[in-house]
């Protein structure tokens, strides 16, 4: 089948999609957007979190056909939507790329280790900070409870979200 939908603000068309394919598979394998991660493919880990018409969802649990005509934002779209360039871009490491505040905070706070959970956490945290710009620790934990991380013990992730919220507050 053919699926038409908007990804990170751009209209996209996917052809030859088998009806059983998930949105996650289409993004990763057909659109060249592997940022959304495939850690469990059963809706438990949150590593594939994307926004579907603004709402965070696990892309692995969304059938590709369900996104027909709808808007999807992935981790690849975070910087475009909210990013500010930090300087000249290093072609090797990407340093200097325009990053959203929450992306920059994850780097600065040491919230990234293996990084496999990071894209899903970023999409979830970004969405929470939109709704709740001054979250308590309990609010952060509740909002991110659908995203597993096995490396960090979550402490630096808490620091990162607090930092992003604080910087966002200063910027207003």
């Amino acid at each position: 089948m053919r699926v038409n939908f908007t990804v990170n603000g751009r209209p996209q068309q996917a052809d030859d999609v088998w009806e059983g394919e998930s949105l996650l598979y289409v993004l990763r394998e057909r659109m060249g957007l592997p940022g959304s991660k495939n850690a469990c493919e059963q809706g438990e880990c949150g590593s594939c979190t994307v926004r579907l018409d603004g709402v965070p969802v696990c892309a692995c649990l969304v059938a590709a056909g369900q996104v027909e005509g709808r808007e999807v934002v992935t981790v690849e779209g975070l910087a475009e939507a909210k990013g500010r360039a930090a300087g000249p871009v290093d072609s090797q490491t990407g340093e200097g790329t325009a990053l959203s505040p929450v992306q920059q905070a994850f780097i600065d706070a040491g919230a990234v280790q293996c990084g496999f959970c990071t894209p899903g956490l970023l999409v979830a945290a970004d969405e929470m900070l939109e709704r709740n710009p001054d979250p308590s620790d309990a609010d952060i934990r509740e909002a991110l409870s659908g995203n597993l991380c096995r490396c960090t013990g979550y402490e630096k992730i808490m620091d990162a979200v607090r930092l992003a919220a604080a910087r966002q507050g200063e910027a207003v």
Binding site: V75, G94, F106, G115, P119
Partner: peptide, 16 residues
């Protein structure tokens, strides 16, 4: 110092 792969990992470009 911060991770050299940090930017790629937060933008989704890091190739696992």
């Amino acid at each position: 110092t911060l991770r050299p792969d940090g930017t790629l990992k937060v933008t989704g470009e890091f190739a696992y």
